[in-house]
Design a binder for these strands. Sequence first.
DNA 1: GATTATACATAGCCAAGCTATATAAGCTGC
DNA 2: GCAGCTTATATAGCTTGGCTATGTATAATC
Lengths: 151, 151
Amino acid sequence: MTQQLRTVLGDLVSVNSRLTRLAASASGNTESPAIWRTIAVLRDLGPMRLGELARVSRVSQPTMTKLVRALDERGWVRRIADAGDARAWLISADPSGIAALDAWREEIAAVLEPTFDDLSDDEVATLAASVEIVRSRLERARAARMAGDVA
Amino acid sequence: MTQQLRTVLGDLVSVNSRLTRLAASASGNTESPAIWRTIAVLRDLGPMRLGELARVSRVSQPTMTKLVRALDERGWVRRIADAGDARAWLISADPSGIAALDAWREEIAAVLEPTFDDLSDDEVATLAASVEIVRSRLERARAARMAGDVA
DNA sequence: GATTATACATAGCCAAGCTATATAAGCTGC
DNA sequence: GCAGCTTATATAGCTTGGCTATGTATAATC
């Protein structure tokens, strides 16, 4: 059972990488996955400080500084001064960023759809259930991290 | 239904990106996903020419040239001269490359396991089924491509 | 109020991705 | 049998995403 879980986790990450390449190459999209991932996190979890955003996204703080700058240049996030701590900013997804994210999702979905359009209802439900499983575990990993579980 | 499929595909790619970051940051692994993806393709589909490997992996030919060089330097692939066409090479996964891939999979599985260790048998089965669904579609996309479906 | 800790920015590196182009080998037509 | 097109891989040069190390400014503490 444990072995089966391990195999599945390895397969999951492995097959993910190929799916990502398919999505990226099939769409002519020029923006990077990191940009979309960052907006998605902000949309799902709400405004937060840059450092917290980095931890949640599992990238280093300097990497997030770069990403936020790129997002800011496109007008897709807003930097709000944190009243009470002049060092910090609250990063918030701008409506235009959410709209761009939605457009990107539409685009990759449209591109992938032909490859997946013969899925049965059950198979679609299986994919949806898996997405929820992974999402819930990501959320748990985040919560554990916030609780100071891991450095 | 179509809308549901589209939403699921968008979610799938989106959540993948976060899972990839979790796997990368939780493991101290220094090798890149592209390296592992390439060996996995070679292992699953057998030896092939560099150009075909690039098409199957959905990267450009120069990108694959770089990856194959990196793999060759580590001794993880072999370049076999193609008898009958002096321009081409057959790229083959070396046993040491397969072993390294297996070790990497073990490592990320071990790192992710604590986050996923309370999954029920049903949930594990759901993830496994999803992996198979995606894998089968990737294979189909590859076959369609080989048939000259897309440039 | 000097020291230490924290939040973010900067510098500088490497890898992965791309397009454009070069090189070398095969293929075709005459 | 070689001129010229096509094909297979390599090289050049760029951008972005990732990292560590370090700088700078503000809080927090003693």
